[in-house]
Structure formats: structure tokens, C-alpha cells
């Protein structure tokens, strides 16, 4: 009962914080330079790992489905299955979990350390808003780059699948590409972007919120990063189910 109440209060706090962020988003000053810095740092910093994750996933999936379906003479369906599952689920989820670990922990550690050393108060005391200076650039950067990274991961995964299909199953690249292109629809890409934007919001808001509420010095910073990675991963996985349902009902029927 007590936990439930604490959980509800926390949720309310986080929603209030989110509201704060959105109300300040549309009023001046807006820090373009800081947004740009964050996009470079978060986006470019996660680029190579997203490519690797997507590519490897594509390789493995194609291998498994290729041999699995070969028994039923279904190798032809591999391009369709691989591309759709990568685009709709695997790339968004894997990339988002990766970003939750990499970017979520980074943001909460940075803001948390600033908080325990009084730098957040200093931002306020110098007449500026920590939400504008720190939060908005990070939230926007995460929301903008995560969908791009996931799309890129899907793409490299599909390329990986093409490679394995040719090497292992002798499927011509042109045939593979044709199959993929005739399977994928706009809703697949849109759904992935939409989900990842939402996951990006969850990760960055939780990370900033927890950073601002970091106490107890260095240990608090460690606790904060763990909290953010665990919570945002759970929320990503649970909300993925519902978002997928909404997208399936809304765009495929």
C-alpha cells in the first residue's frame, strides 16, 4: 500500500516535470547551440554501436529463420520475415535499450553530479533555467536521434540479412531486395519512428528527472544511473506491447 502510494506520487512528480519541460519548450530562450551539441554527442556517439547491433541482429535472424524455414521449403520468406521483424520490433527495441543504457545513464550521471556539487543551483542563481539549459537540449536530442539510429539499425540489419541469404542460402541480392521492398510499407517505418521517439522521451525525461533528484554525493550518482537504466528499460518493454497494438490496429487495418 505504502509502495503503491509512493509510486503514484513519483509518477505524478515525473508527469509534472514533463509538463514543465513542454511548457518551456515553446518559450524563449531556446538554446540551439546546446541542442546541436547534444545531438552530436548523443547521436554520433551511439552511431557505430547502433550499426553493429543492427547488422549482427540481421545476420543472426537470417541464419535462424533461414535454417528453420528451410525444413518447410520456406526460405523464400526469409527476406520478408527478417525485414519486418527488424523494422517493427527488433531494431527499435534493441536500439532503445542500448540508448537507455548508454545515454540514459550518461545524462543522469552528468546532471546528478552537477546537482550534488551545486551546479544546478548555480544555473538558477545566475538567472537561467536548468530545464532550458540542460533538459530541453537533451530531451530533444534523444527524441530526434533515437528514431534515426533505430532506422539505421534496421537498414544495416536488412543488409546483414542480404549478406547471409546470399552466402548461406544462395539467394541473389536482387531477389532479396525485391522481396524486402515489396513487403515493407510506410506504416512499418512510421511505427518504428513513432515508438522510438516515445522511448527517447521516456529515457531522457527519466534520466533528467532522476539527475535533478540525486542526493547523497557520489553514491547517489551511481544509484541514479542504475535507477534510470532499469526503469526506462522496463517502461520501454511494457509500453512497446501497447504501442505495437495501437500501431497495428491504427495503421494496418
Amino acid at each position: 500500500m505504502k509502495d503503491l502510494k509512493a509510486g503514484l506520487i513519483l509518477t505524478g512528480d515525473i508527469l509534472d516535470f514533463t509538463k514543465d519541460v513542454f511548457t518551456r519548450l515553446f518559450s524563449k530562450p531556446f538554446y540551439w547551440g546546446r541542442l546541436f551539441d547534444q545531438i552530436i554527442q548523443l547521436g554520433l556517439g551511439s552511431l557505430s554501436i547502433s550499426i553493429v547491433i543492427g547488422f549482427i541482429t540481421g545476420l543472426v535472424m537470417t541464419l535462424q529463420f533461414g535454417y528453420g524455414l528451410a525444413k518447410f521449403g520456406g526460405t523464400l520468406y526469409v527476406p520478408a520475415i527478417v525485414s519486418v521483424s527488424l523494422l517493427r520490433e527488433l531494431a527499435p527495441i534493441f536500439t532503445s535499450l542500448l540508448i537507455a543504457g548508454r545515454v540514459g545513464s550518461g545524462i543522469s550521471a552528468e546532471i546528478g553530479a552537477m546537482n550534488v556539487t551545486g551546479q544546478i543551483d548555480a544555473i538558477r542563481a545566475l538567472g537561467t533555467s536548468p530545464v532550458r539549459v540542460l533538459v530541453i537540449p537533451r530531451v530533444l536530442a534523444t527524441v530526434l536521434t533515437l528514431p534515426l539510429l533505430a532506422t539505421l539499425a534496421s537498414f544495416t540489419g536488412i543488409i546483414g540479412g542480404m549478406l547471409i541469404s546470399y552466402i548461406e542460402f544462395g539467394m541473389p541480392a536482387g531477389f532479396y531486395a525485391n522481396k524486402v521492398l515489396s513487403t515493407i510499407v510506410f506504416a512499418d517505418i512510421f511505427g518504428s519512428i513513432f515508438k522510438c521517439a516515445f522511448f527517447g522521451l521516456v529515457i531522457s525525461i527519466l534520466a533528467c528527472y532522476r539527475g535533478f533528484h540525486t542526493k547523497e554525493g557520489t553514491r547517489g550518482v551511481g544509484n541514479a544511473t542504475t535507477w534510470v537504466v532499469v526503469r526506462s528499460s522496463i517502461i520501454i518493454l511494457i509500453s512497446d506491447f501497447f504501442l505495437s497494438k495501437i500501431i497495428l490496429v491504427g495503421f494496418y487495418q
Binding site: M114, T117, G118, Q119, D121, A122, R124, A125, L126, G127, T128, S129
Partner: peptide, 23 residues
């Protein structure tokens, strides 16, 4: 409210006990 304090804090300035520089 917090936003209305910002201009005021340029007139009343607080120098922190621990300096609180941006590291």
C-alpha cells in the same frame, strides 16, 4: 514563481559557499 526570479537574480547575486563553478 521560478521564472520571475530569473531577472531578479541578476540584481541580487549569490556567491556559493563551495564556489559551485561549472566544472
Amino acid at each position: 514563481d521560478e521564472e520571475s526570479y530569473y531577472p531578479l537574480r541578476t540584481k541580487i547575486s549569490y556567491s556559493f559557499q563551495n564556489a559551485a563553478l561549472f566544472d
